[in-house]
């Protein structure tokens, strides 16, 4: 619905963004793809040679990979479970009439704005440290042995930290969705004799389904890339106990200088992320028509 003139202008206006993103996408990704078929170590420059699928073979058969894959799934799944369930409950609570709602909202949303390195270090040192951390102090006050969270339950601890960061996101989105629920619909249901639980199950929850799906998909994209939290707390250890795919690729390429292996890992990470992305894009794409 426009003239040829404005269409030409539009094409001109959109091209810088498209060209830049195209370059950002294609150049490095094709380099990664190329490297993934090379024997290429930064410590041995000039020794690059073609190795076919070897890098993929080694990366996929490395026990570290299956550990990292499991950890990634546990990390993503665990955080999603905590944030979606917790976020729904919290959103329901915050949607009730109360005093100081604005302030509570601000308190709840705050962790989302904390940079990952800060939240990870604060939890690691001030709370989970087995000697001087808050939890250790509490345990001793109760006459129990302090627990070294990051040494004995590294993955669970990281899940806890990441969940704390993402709970506000889920809460905020679900709360926004709740507030768009038609009050008259609720009143109609009440007139029809539905109790509070019925109203939640048959009206609120279906209304939230879309928002929950969005939360799950978007968080998944970000959670697949969790990195800083692991880097500053456990360095992926002990052993590979808290290594996820992202961290494994980083370790392979920039700690072991194995560009070929790291690239193969990077391509695998891209494939995994794309599987999730396809679902997310369908969701958002559908919404675009509405």
């Amino acid at each position: 619905m426009a003239t040829q003139h404005s269409k030409t202008a539009a094409r001109l206006m959109i091209s810088p963004a498209v060209i830049l993103l195209l370059l950002w996408m294609i150049v490095p990704l094709s380099m990664t793809l190329y490297f993934s078929f090379l024997r290429y170590n930064l410590l041995m420059p000039g020794m690059e040679s073609f190795t076919g699928w070897d890098n993929y073979y080694y990366f996929l058969t490395d026990p570290a990979f299956s550990a990292a894959l499991t950890n990634t799934i546990l990390l993503v799944g665990g955080v999603l479970l905590i944030t979606v369930v917790g976020g729904t409950l919290l959103a329901l609570l915050l949607d009730q009439p109360m005093w100081g709602q604005g302030i509570v909202r601000i308190l709840v949303i705050a962790p989302f704005f904390i940079m990952p390195t800060v939240s990870a270090l604060v939890w690691k040192n001030m709370f989970m440290n087995p000697v001087n951390g808050m939890f250790a102090h509490i345990a001793r006050a109760l006459g129990m042995q302090p627990f070294d969270f990051l040494a004995h339950a590294p993955l669970a601890s990281i899940i806890g930290i990441v969940a704390w960061q993402w709970l506000p996101f889920a809460t905020l989105i679900l709360l926004t969705a709740l507030q768009s629920l038609d009050r008259e619909q609720m009143e109609a249901a009440e007139m029809d004799g539905a109790g509070p639980l019925d109203r939640f199950l048959y009206i609120t929850l279906p209304h939230l389904t879309r928002a929950i799906t969005v939360v799950v998909l978007i968080q998944t994209i970000f959670l697949l890339g969790v990195f800083a939290e692991i880097l500053v707390t456990t360095n992926g250890g002990p052993g590979t106990a808290s290594t996820n795919i992202t961290y494994l690729v980083y370790a392979q390429s920039l700690l072991n200088y194995d560009v070929g292996g790291g690239s193969a890992g990077g391509i695998i990470a891209v494939i995994l992320a794309n599987i999730v992305a396809i679902f997310l894009m369908r969701m958002i794409g559908k919404n675009l028509d509405a």
Binding site: V27, L29, T32, G225, T246, Y250, L272, L280, M281, I284
Partner: peptide
């Protein structure tokens, strides 16, 4: 304001670049 037949595809494609994991392009 000047949506064309491919506008939606361009938008979705832009979004897809955001979904590319950083480690995929870390080395290059």
């Amino acid at each position: 304001f000047v949506p064309g037949r491919r506008t939606k595809d361009v938008l979705m494609w832009m979004l897809s670049t955001k979904m590319m994991p950083a480690v995929g392009v870390l080395i290059p």
